[in-house]
Write a protein that binds this DNA or RNA. Structure first.
Lengths: 204, 204
DNA sequence: ATCTTTGGCTTGACAGTGTCAAGTTTAGAC
DNA sequence: GTCTAAACTTGACACTGTCAAGCCAAAGAT
């Protein structure tokens, strides 16, 4: 009732939102290979061409999903670490949160790291969200290296990212199933045991 | 001239081989998304249906490529480590070889870890080759943990794999380019610096 | 020498895809 | 009521993976 632009903005945002929701449902239900523009349209109850009114092409809708994924990853990372105060505990909590996010949103997570599907130089918002999520990691790794050695350790940032990302990826692709099983609980337990080893890397 | 079956085997193997070679060329030239059965046929100079005479479907030809990839990775790993005798050096050499393989064969490497594209439970030979490559890693990690602590450390195997795999993956997806650059040399140098940090994990 | 088999290949179709082009509906502003 | 612009539609195009059917040359058996 109050402001006209508000209503206009909502109606402009709502079909876009509906398409994104349909895409997220589809992608987690059918996997990345099952994603198609036409199936998104079908699920949103519109014609096959309607999505092109809100996104220039397939890559753009995927980029929007990627951006949202990095926002959620950032939020999860902050939520998982803000309860802890000891740097080492925060570091550990971040690693667990990263793996848990990947295992809970497998197709979404994979998409976030498929540079052929979404070229970040063409999609600034996806890139920005990715960098914001990365910043959380940077801060927590810096905390732990400052606490342990009194100095920042830039290489440790990439080392830490590589460790948790590799663990998440291998689990997602089923490469560790033979050892840890395929259920969520057993995978999380396996991840925790591997993370414990990986954390030796921060010791002086 | 000598043996009939030998010639028969060669002519039976040769078109299959030609299709695999065309696939490998295509995949490294156009990336994973650029791969298509019809383009493979075009490059091999045959009709669009000819490949189906040698592979039941698209996934089967991809599985054959995956198998070949793991064979090469295994060969590279053995070649890179057999010159070294100190376990820690062998461990380091293996990590470098893993990353170098990924960076040298980006699309091929990615395919080897795309479980939606090639389900290993449906393609025994791909699975077997993957396991043989994995065995090389297992042996070298066991060597280094035995040398350091006198005991095997199974969790260290998965930790090591996660580290190098995550590093390779992040580099391939361009996620570390901002820091290390995108050229082969600068990436390899960056990888070496990260690997040095990661190797703290094997210290007692 | 003829017949049959078989491996390698072809052409033609079908439903599915992403996307271009052009037309239609609809809702609010004036 | 008219105008405008957003939201949407229908219809095409070239492309994909794959099914179905048939062609052809060489090899083996009779």
């Amino acid at each position: 009732m109050t402001a006209v632009p508000k209503t206009a903005a909502r109606t402009a945002e709502s079909p876009r939102r509906a398409l994104l929701d349909a895409s997220l449902d589809l992608i987690e239900a059918e996997g990345l290979e099952g994603f198609s523009m036409r199936e998104v349209a079908r699920r949103a109850g519109v014609s096959h061409q309607a999505p092109y009114h809100h996104f220039p092409d397939r890559e753009a809708i995927l980029a929007a999903i990627v951006a949202e994924g990095f926002e959620r990853l950032r939020a999860d990372s902050l939520a998982a670490t803000e309860g802890e105060s000891d740097p080492a505990c925060r570091y550990h909590a971040l690693g667990r949160a990263y793996v848990k996010f990947a295992l809970s949103n497998p197709a979404h997570f994979k998409l976030m790291f498929r540079s052929e599907l979404v070229r970040e130089d063409k999609h600034e918002d996806a890139k920005a969200c990715a960098e914001q999520a990365f910043d959380v990691l940077v801060n927590i790794v810096d905390e732990v290296s400052l606490a342990n050695t009194g100095e920042r350790d830039p290489a440790l940032i990439f080392a830490s990212w590589s460790m948790v990302h590799g663990l998440a990826t291998l689990m997602l692709e089923g490469k560790l199933d033979k050892h840890f099983g395929a259920s969520m609980d057993s995978r999380l337990a396996g991840a925790a045991s591997v993370l414990k080893v990986l954390e030796r890397v921060v010791k002086p």
